[in-house]
Write a protein that binds this DNA or RNA. Structure first.
Length: 248
DNA sequence: GCGACAG
DNA sequence: ATCTTGTCGC
């Protein structure tokens, strides 16, 4: 993916949809990863009532999951949120954060969908193409597709399927009903609402699930995404005002 | 035509 | 996503 002009992000909804359709065909759906020594988590938050976009990237060392890098990048928000076009709103800022990283991680986990998207190009897939890195999406909610009930035990999952679309490769595996498996609804924590896991670029669903499970801590969200989420929304211990009056 | 709809 | 207070539970 050539990192060319800014105008790649300032498109009309119609143009953006056309671009997604084209880019989706360039996704690599098989594993192509270098040995992983660092996993990154990405998420975006907003300030000033949405006027400022705040991107956060947290890099965790593998396999101990210690945070070794943490960067934040802020810039003016340039596009509204439109379901299905999230990447055009959030990726520019995410790239700004990646530029501040001293080194590239071998795997990137994104808060949002991978190919579990109407045109198979959720933010994780789009970012993966742009960075040319293996990516996967871990979303808190479903954008498209349907699924059955998810077993109650941690680690269990149910396939998320969708009708075939033009963007799907000619050789996509189909389930018994002729539907495309675009992700998995994973019970990452018992008694808690499951998360939606889907591969982005250069990764298979099976591998995306393995990494998600391998990065789980005590909460339902895997550590890379959870930490990036806190940093982007400036929550969590490291971001409380040190001088704030104690409640105790 | 009527819902659904990542963050 | 963000705006918001207290509250239930490990």
């Amino acid at each position: 993916m050539p990192r060319t002009a800014l105008h790649d992000w300032d498109l009309s909804p119609e143009e953006a949809i056309a671009l997604q359709t084209r880019l989706a065909t360039r996704l690599e759906r098989r594993d192509r990863c270098d040995p992983v020594t660092h996993v990154a988590g990405v998420d975006i938050g907003f300030e000033d009532g949405g006027a400022t976009t705040r991107a956060a990237v947290v890099v965790l060392r593998w396999p101990d999951l210690e945070t070794v890098e943490q960067v934040v990048h802020r810039e003016p928000t340039r596009m509204p949120y439109i379901p299905g076009l999230l990447s055009f709103r959030e990726i520019p800022a995410a790239l700004g954060a990646f530029d501040k990283l001293p080194r590239r991680p071998e795997l990137v986990m994104v808060d949002g969908q991978g190919i579990a998207h109407p045109r198979r190009l959720g933010i994780a897939a789009h970012l993966g193409l742009w960075l040319d890195l293996p990516t996967l999406g871990v979303a808190k909610k479903r954008l498209c597709g349907r699924h059955g009930e998810v077993p109650a035990a941690k680690g269990e999952w149910t396939p998320l399927t969708d009708r075939r679309r033009a963007e799907d490769p000619a050789d996509v595996p189909l389930d018994d009903d002729g539907r495309v498996v675009i992700g998995a609804v994973l019970r990452s924590r018992e008694r808690v609402k499951p998360v939606i896991v889907s591969p982005g670029h250069r990764l298979s669903l099976a591998t995306a699930l393995e990494w998600t499970l391998a990065c789980l801590g005590r909460t339902k969200l895997p550590e890379p995404t959870r930490l990036a989420d806190r940093l982007a929304s400036r929550r969590g211990r490291a971001f409380r005002d040190p001088g704030a009056p104690s409640l105790l």
